[in-house]
Amino acid sequence: MNYFEMLIAAIFVNNIILAQYLGCCPFVGCSKDRGVAIGMGAAVTFVASMATAFTWLMQKYVLNPFGLGYLQTLVFILVIASLVQFVEMFLKKMVPPLYKSLGIFLPLITTNCAVLGLAILAQRNEFGLGVSVFYAFSAALGFTLALFLMAGIRERLVISRVPKSMQGTSIGLVMAGLMSLTFFAFQGMIG
């Protein structure tokens, strides 16, 4: 599969939220404002790419040589948590403007299943290092797209009349379903 096909497949066909159900919590929680959605998306893209690279190296040079494949989950989450913490400190000191825009999202990302999920999925698909990182990057772009679209709809939803019991998360999920249905149409794109 070439890179372009992979990019399209990861963003549209197998959209990480709408087709694979990863990262639903921020999809519901951080989709009230388009600016916040973009910030969250950028932070996830950044961290997911880095985390996938690190965990790939971990798997290859620590877990596999010792035959400790079963510790994957434990090691990956440890690596991701430390990485997020480190990136946060690094950005705060070295790149304050970037920290300003991404800083508040970083602590939320440790417990984002999209990041851990992508790292594990890359392993299960047995990708090489470069492909893994590219896969994580494009899937995270798909995450950003879904979040941004949702935020756009929600901004309009604020001013429409929704039955009392359907307000908030409830109508949000129904809309996510309709979006997911739309994205279903992309399934035929990559054969």
Binding site: V62, L63, F66, G67, L68, L71, L74, V75, L78, V79, S82, Q85, F86, M89
Partner: peptide, 18 residues
């Protein structure tokens, strides 16, 4: 032993780096 060592080493490394 190896799993304990790896987890211990990894935890220590992360803690030190952080």
């Amino acid at each position: 032993t190896s799993s304990i060592l790896v987890m211990f080493g990894l935890g220590l490394a992360c803690a030190v780096v952080l």
